[in-house]
């Protein structure tokens, strides 16, 4: 039985090889995969988020921690799906149409995944139709949109309107973020939530699925 504290440390330190090796060994010895996620990896990503918020970690540290977590999740997720375990929520995330900036979106996606959500990353320059398709085909219950530019943020409004026209607005919570976004703008366009940072986005998503 491996020391599972080492899994926590491997994720926090961004050591993907160690994270994967400990996960594989633990699974081979019969440890419940959900225990690995909930008791070790989620707390590890919480700690990464805390350090990021406290300016102890920066983007490189956060990205390698996320990479370590993903290495383990890749072997864990099929086991959870096979036995019918449900994620905390299913998030379709993307940078809106016309905008190719993705570093902030990627940080949010990683922390959401670390928070126990299934994340469907639609990438950049995502059309409203693509978001709608993901709600319909993959049953996403949260849509998370990012925009870096004041000139692309109107695409958030048009996406929300498209969700209404397609009749799926009531099936999803819409969360938005990005440098030019404010709570006032979120209220104006009828989004369900806004966070000014990546750590806050996880709390927001948890709140959104709880209501």
């Amino acid at each position: 039985m491996p020391d599972l504290k080492l899994l926590y440390e491997a994720v926090v330190n961004g050591d993907a090889k160690a994270s994967l090796a400990i996960t594989q060994q633990a699974l081979a010895e019969g440890v419940d995969p959900l225990i690995l996620v909930n008791e070790h990896m989620v707390p590890a990503m919480d700690e990464v988020g805390r350090r990021f918020e406290a300016n102890e970690f920066f983007v490189p540290e956060l990205l390698i921690a996320a990479r370590a977590m993903k290495a383990s999740l890749e072997v864990i997720r099929p086991l959870l799906i096979a036995r019918g375990d449900k994620p905390a929520g299913r998030v379709a995330i993307g940078t809106v149409k016309g905008d190719l900036h993705d570093i902030g979106k990627n940080l949010v996606a990683s922390l959401l995944e670390g928070g126990g959500f299934e994340v469907i990353d639609l990438g950049v320059n995502v059309t409203p139709e693509k978001f709608i398709e993901t709600v319909n085909l993959k049953q996403a219950n949260i849509i998370a949109m990012s925009a870096l530019l004041t000139t692309t943020m109107p695409a958030m409004k048009s996406t929300i309107e498209a969700l209404k026209s397609a009749g799926v607005r009531d099936r999803v919570k819409v969360l938005i973020g990005g440098a030019p976004i404010t709570q006032k703008y979120a209220d104006e366009i009828g989004a369900d939530g806004y966070s000014e940072n990546a750590v806050g986005a996880v709390a927001l998503a948890k709140k959104a699925v709880a209501t």
Binding site: G14, V59, P60, L63, I64, R67, D102, I103, N106
Partner: peptide, 10 residues
């Protein structure tokens, strides 16, 4: 690529 460069530091 900005995402890749961030991990290149390590």
């Amino acid at each position: 690529g900005i995402n890749t460069l961030m991990t290149d530091f390590f």
